[in-house]
Simulated assay, not measured.
Amino acid sequence: MPAAVGVIQTIGFPAILAAADAAVKNGRVTLVYYDIAESGHFYIAIRGSISEVKPAIAAGIEAAEKTFGGEVVTHYIVPNPPENIVAVLPIEYTEQVEPFRT
């Protein structure tokens, strides 16, 4: 069964840094992607089992909103993505994230 995918998008780097930190500390998830979305918007993608991704995303959202000036633009969880989703989205487990995979 494929791992669930959770994504958080924020305005400002401090908010996404706090979100990523809280997410990986509050669930057995792997941070698989980080990038700039557009003009000051940043996003992260995490993967893991759905029972771990849900609380990790919730903790990430809370941490981002508590950050000074932090604002969560959007977030979502894909509970059971198909295996071929990595063909179009950069959310696969790469060599860079493999040592941190849970």
Rank of each mutant, 00 (worst) to 15 (best):
P2T: 14
A3K: 15
A3P: 04
V5Q: 00
V5F: 10
V5D: 03
G6V: 12
T10K: 00
G12C: 05
F13S: 09
F13V: 13
P14F: 01
P14G: 06
P14V: 06
A15G: 10
I16Y: 01
I16P: 01
L17C: 07
L17I: 15
A18R: 00
A18S: 05
A22V: 15
A22Y: 02
A22R: 05
K25M: 06
N26F: 08
G27W: 00
R28T: 12
V29C: 04
V29T: 07
V32R: 01
V32H: 03
I36F: 10
E38Y: 12
G40N: 09
H41I: 13
Y43W: 14
Y43N: 01
R47W: 11
G48F: 02
G48Q: 03
G48S: 06
I50F: 11
S51V: 15
E52G: 01
E52V: 08
V53Y: 06
V53S: 07
P55G: 02
P55T: 13
G60L: 10
E65P: 05
E65Y: 07
F68I: 11
G69I: 11
I77L: 06
N80L: 11
P81R: 04
P82K: 14
P82M: 09
I85A: 04
I85T: 07
P90C: 05
I91P: 01
E92M: 13
E92A: 10
T94Y: 03
Q96A: 14
V97T: 10
V97F: 02
P99L: 05
T102H: 12
